[in-house]
Simulated assay, not measured.
Amino acid sequence: MAGGGARLGRLKIGGGARWNRYARWRRGPAVLLLAVLAVLVLLTASIPPTASMDGEAAAVPALSPSSDDAPANTERDDDLALYDRIIARVADGEDYYAAAVEEQRAGDYPVRPGLAVRLPTLAILHARLGEGGLQAIAFLLLAATAWAWWRRLGAEPGGARYRNFAAALIVLGGSTILNRYYFVLHEFWTGMLIALSLGLHRPGRYWPALAVAALALALREHTLPFVLLMAAMALWRRHWREGLAWLTLTGIFALALRFHLEAVAALVLPTDPQGPPWLVLDGMRGWLSKVVLSSNLRFLPHWLAGPLAVLMVFGWSGWRSPAGSTATLLLLGYALAFMLAGRANNFYWGAVVAPLMFVGLAFVPVAATSLIRAARGR
């Protein structure tokens, strides 16, 4: 009976279930991964925020300056004020590209290369719908994303027991989208749409996910790695039609991006300086600065926020399912990209993956327990 009770206890946390990736690992690989994980946790706990990270974090208020409850002395961040001016001019009927290039030039922001000028979609939507319309969309988007992940976890092996917690984590990770202060930032909308797209996706049933991803791609080109990963995963599963659909979306976006770059280039003057490079090779600090400062992790001390970010990715890796595998590859891919590219003032890029990252915390206990047992040879 005692042995049976022990086995039952193991089953309750995942035991040797096929969806539990680390339950059947051999001792050697388990010990190696635990060592790597320990090093990453210690490393991220020891990396203090830079001065620029402190400054950016302090500049983000809890409430929008347009809110009646906002502090009277709250100042609008320079980047956000720039987007405010562009949106106001578009709302007055001006051409987006003329307004964006003129405002960026007047504010000493680069317009070269063309990607320094954002895609027009969010500014046009903001101008047409207003802040009230976006507030309603933000609530619906957050609710839809939590619902989509509640459904998806219930449909994939091992996920049903975690779906309530995971849905709550999506709300926690994505709640920044409800803050009107961020409405002009493309990455916060993009991150929620990516999370919704992956939550809606089912292998072989991809049209809702594809439509949501198309909207995210129209907002920010940083969505492209997600779209390419979805295409690669579909082709790896030999779902040729789905793979072709994701690749077709990529081709359509390439044409739209070409139009965007040509529209910007037509307004660029020979005297316009080239913007600083985005390739800065900032390593682990670059990844941490983005995913921490662009999420609710910013409210925690750095020695706790950094390890939690690592554990989020680790938790995702423990769920052996189509959703778990895709999310793990996605987060690792963006982590590498953020280590290579993005200046200190580009910290908001991390919002592209921040909402999805939080779900990984739901799987940390079972993943860690299984990995430790495997390392002990049990």
Rank of each mutant, 00 (worst) to 15 (best):
F358H: 13
A323Y: 10
V353A: 01
A362G: 12
L330E: 02
A354H: 07
T369N: 15
L340V: 09
A337P: 00
M357V: 04
G324S: 13
Y348R: 04
V352E: 12
L336S: 06
T369D: 14
P322G: 08
Y334F: 12
A368C: 15
W349A: 03
T369V: 13
G333V: 03
R343G: 00
A362R: 04
F347Y: 15
M339D: 02
P355C: 11
T326Q: 05
L332Y: 11
A351R: 05
V364I: 09
T328S: 12
F358N: 12
L336D: 03
S370L: 10
A323P: 04
G324Q: 10
F347D: 11
V366Q: 15
P365K: 00
F358R: 03
F338Q: 02
A323K: 06
A367V: 14
A368G: 14
L356Y: 06
A367W: 07
M339V: 02
A354C: 10
S370W: 11
L356G: 05
A368M: 15
A354L: 07
A351T: 10
T326S: 02
M339Q: 06
L340P: 03
M339L: 06
Y334T: 05
Y334K: 11
Y334C: 02
F358M: 15
A341S: 10
V353Q: 01
P322H: 07
A354N: 13
Y348M: 12
N345G: 13
G333W: 00
V366C: 14
A327V: 14
Y334S: 00
T326C: 01
G360T: 10
V359C: 05
P365I: 01
G324V: 11
F347K: 05
A341D: 10
V366T: 14
L356A: 05
L361V: 13
A362T: 08
A327K: 06
M357I: 04
L330T: 10
G324T: 09
